[in-house]
Simulated scan of single mutants.
Amino acid sequence: MESPVRQLYLLPLLLLLCDACAQVYGCNETGMLERLPRCGRTFADRMQRVDVWKWCNLSEFVVYYESFTNCTELETNIVGCYWPNPLAQSFITDIHRQFFSNCTVDRTHWEDPPDEILIPLIAVPVVLTVAMAGLVVWRSKRTEQLL
């Protein structure tokens, strides 16, 4: 098995070669659907090394996921397809459902406060700003009178 570093160096060369193939032959969707499961199997094998309760923490498997993404891109380009495309996205979505369906994002639903609270929060700073400006003007005129 090649090292991940070597794979990263070879990836641009392979993508360049595959881009030339795409221009000549076009997209072979059947070939792509035959090749993408290899990426999924490799990703699944690697994910088995990660505890299931850590599957929602991307930092635990980011290297595996990056490798999976690179693999899907490479395989789609080899058969002359662009990436991402609807078929590849569908495949990636299926992998997400398989591994990350229990990962939910708890998002806080923000609402504006009621008017009884919102109006004073806006009015008080405005009134204080006007009052402080008035106080500065009044004080500066009074200093001139004292001199």
Rank of each mutant, 00 (worst) to 15 (best):
R35D: 09
C18M: 08
T69G: 09
E29G: 03
Y9T: 04
W83L: 03
Y9M: 11
T72I: 03
A22S: 13
V63R: 07
F99Q: 07
D51F: 06
V79E: 09
A88F: 02
I78A: 11
V50M: 08
W53R: 14
F99Y: 08
V50Q: 08
K54L: 14
Q89G: 14
W55H: 12
V62T: 08
A88C: 07
V105R: 09
R49P: 03
R35G: 02
I95K: 08
L17Y: 11
I78L: 10
C27V: 12
C27K: 04
V79Q: 05
H109R: 02
A20Y: 12
D94T: 02
L58G: 06
V52S: 13
G31C: 13
N102R: 12
V24N: 03
N57F: 12
R46I: 00
V105A: 06
W55G: 05
C21I: 15
S101T: 01
R97P: 00
D94C: 00
E29D: 13
D45Q: 15
C103Q: 11
M32E: 15
E34Q: 12
R41A: 10
C21S: 11
P37A: 04
T69F: 05
R46L: 06
R41F: 06
C39S: 13
W55C: 03
G31T: 13
P37S: 09
T108A: 12
T108L: 08
S90G: 15
P84Y: 04
S59H: 10
N57D: 15
I95T: 01
C27L: 09
G26T: 09
F99G: 08
G31L: 09
E111F: 01
H109W: 02
S101W: 02
Q89T: 13
E60H: 04
W53F: 10
C39A: 15
I92W: 01
L10M: 12
T72N: 15
M47S: 14
F68R: 03
A88V: 07
S90L: 06
T76C: 15
G31Y: 03
Q48P: 00
T108K: 09
R49H: 07
N102I: 02
A88Q: 05
Y82K: 10
C56Q: 12
P37G: 08
C103K: 05
